[in-house]
Simulated scan of single mutants.
Amino acid sequence: MRKNLLCTCLLVLLSATMPFFAESPPSGISKEFIYTEAPFPSAHASTLVQLVNGDILAAWFGGAKEGATDVAIWGARRTSAGWSAPFLLVREPNVPCWNPVLFETHDGRLWLYYKYGRNVREWTGARLVSKDQGKTWSQPEHLPAGLLGPIKDKPLVLENGTIVSGTSVESYSAWAVWVDRSTDNGATWHRSGPITVPTRLMPSPALFQPPLKPGSEQVTGIIQPSVVQLGKKHLRLYARSTRDIGRICAADSYDDGVTWTDAHPMDLPNPNSGIDAVGLKDGRVVLIYNNTTTGRTPLNLAVSKDGEHFTMFSTLEDQPGEYSYPAIIQGRDSNLYATYTWNRKRIAFAKIPLSSVH
Rank of each mutant, 00 (worst) to 15 (best):
R2N: 15
N4G: 12
L5G: 11
L5P: 08
C9A: 13
S15V: 11
A16I: 11
F20N: 13
S27W: 09
E32M: 12
F33H: 12
I34H: 00
I34T: 06
A38L: 09
P39Q: 14
P41F: 09
H44T: 06
T47R: 01
N53L: 10
N53G: 12
D55E: 15
W60V: 01
A64P: 11
A64E: 15
K65Q: 13
W74Q: 05
W74G: 03
W83G: 02
A85Y: 12
P86E: 03
F87L: 15
L88S: 14
L89G: 04
V90D: 02
N94D: 15
L102M: 08
L102T: 05
T105N: 09
H106Y: 13
L110M: 09
L112Q: 04
R118A: 13
R121E: 13
T124L: 12
R127F: 14
Q133I: 09
G146H: 05
I151H: 05
D153W: 05
K154H: 10
T162G: 09
T162F: 09
S165D: 08
S171E: 15
Y172N: 14
A174P: 10
G186Y: 03
A187S: 13
W189S: 09
R191W: 11
V197D: 04
S204A: 08
Q209P: 02
K213R: 13
P214Q: 04
P214E: 08
I222S: 01
Q224Y: 04
S226L: 02
R236P: 00
D244M: 10
D244L: 03
I245N: 01
S253H: 01
T259R: 02
T259F: 09
T261L: 11
H264Y: 15
L268R: 00
D276Y: 00
A277T: 08
V278R: 03
G279D: 08
K281N: 11
D282V: 06
L287K: 01
I288Y: 00
N290W: 02
T292P: 02
T293C: 08
T297N: 05
N300R: 06
V303M: 10
D306C: 10
G307Y: 01
L316H: 01
E317C: 03
P320N: 12
E322N: 07
P326F: 02
P326Q: 07
I329L: 12
R332F: 12
N335G: 11
N335S: 15
A350L: 03
I352C: 00
I352S: 02
S355M: 10
V357W: 01
H358E: 11
